[in-house]
Amino acid sequence: MTEPLLRVIDLKTHFRIKASWMFGEKQLIKAVDGVSFDIAPGEVLSLVGESGCGKSTVGRTLTHLDQATSGRALFEGQDFLVMSPIEFRPLRREIQMIFQDPFASLNPRLKIEQTLGEPLFIHGLCKTWDEARAKIAVMLETVGMDPLVMKRHPHEFSGGQRQRIGIARVMILKPKLVIADEAVSALDVSIQAQVLNLLKKLQQDSGVSMLFISHDLGVVRHISDQVAVMHEGKIVEIGRKRQIFEAPQHEYTRKLLESIPRVKIGKEVA
């Protein structure tokens, strides 16, 4: 039994919001309410569920974008939820996040080389721009883009290309864990297939672990080793991919699977 890269134990993230702006009766929203899972090195775990189930909050909590209420998260045995921002900084290189919206997640004022180069300098992986540009060129080729695009700005690229740049920005740091939150949801199907293939190939080649957050069960089946189904802040079922898709145990998982519209080819279901 290998040691998990990431172990999440009974994670809770609650938010206190006011029911109305004036009559401040506070309400407690239990976005994540006792979630536990392990991700082994080189494995992909998907969190799947409908909007509001808390799947994105799990990803945001693990990257310190939201604050955990209780519970523990161990990265290589180290509890990083309790770390101060400065203590957490070295881990930021190792835990990287790919966001959903390729139009909002790249700084429009920066050239691609600045967007990809900045994290290299921040994490001390490069000393000079020559070094950085060499790395950026290699990375851009890996994600299927011409290295010359590093001199251009985000507005010159389509959604699919921007998502490739977003992936390059993450992979160039050689992280151990990538958290991808709806990374292909905003793309057209023909482009989504290209980006999914790319993500899967990069994952297999580099052996990075991935927490893949998505509402699309087809996409989840394609990329995962393990699947966790979330509903109302809790994981209702977790297991190997085949088990979840072919022998779902929980009623909610079955309902989700039954709800998906399928292309019927002839008499049989594809």
């Binding site: 389509s158 699919g160 290309q161 057209d188 199907v189 023909s190 482009i191 989504q192 297939a193 290209q194 999914l196 293939n197 899967k200 699309d216 069960l217 087809g218 996409v219 089946r221 394609h222 991919k241 898709f245 699977l257 998906i260 399928r262 292309v263 279901v269 594809a270």
Partner: peptide, 23 residues
Amino acid sequence: GLLNSIPVVDSDVDWLEAIPGRV
């Protein structure tokens, strides 16, 4: 191409046959 691009929930494929290029 469109049909091949969709990851389906009822079976496993290693790689999707994506349409190259873009719209």
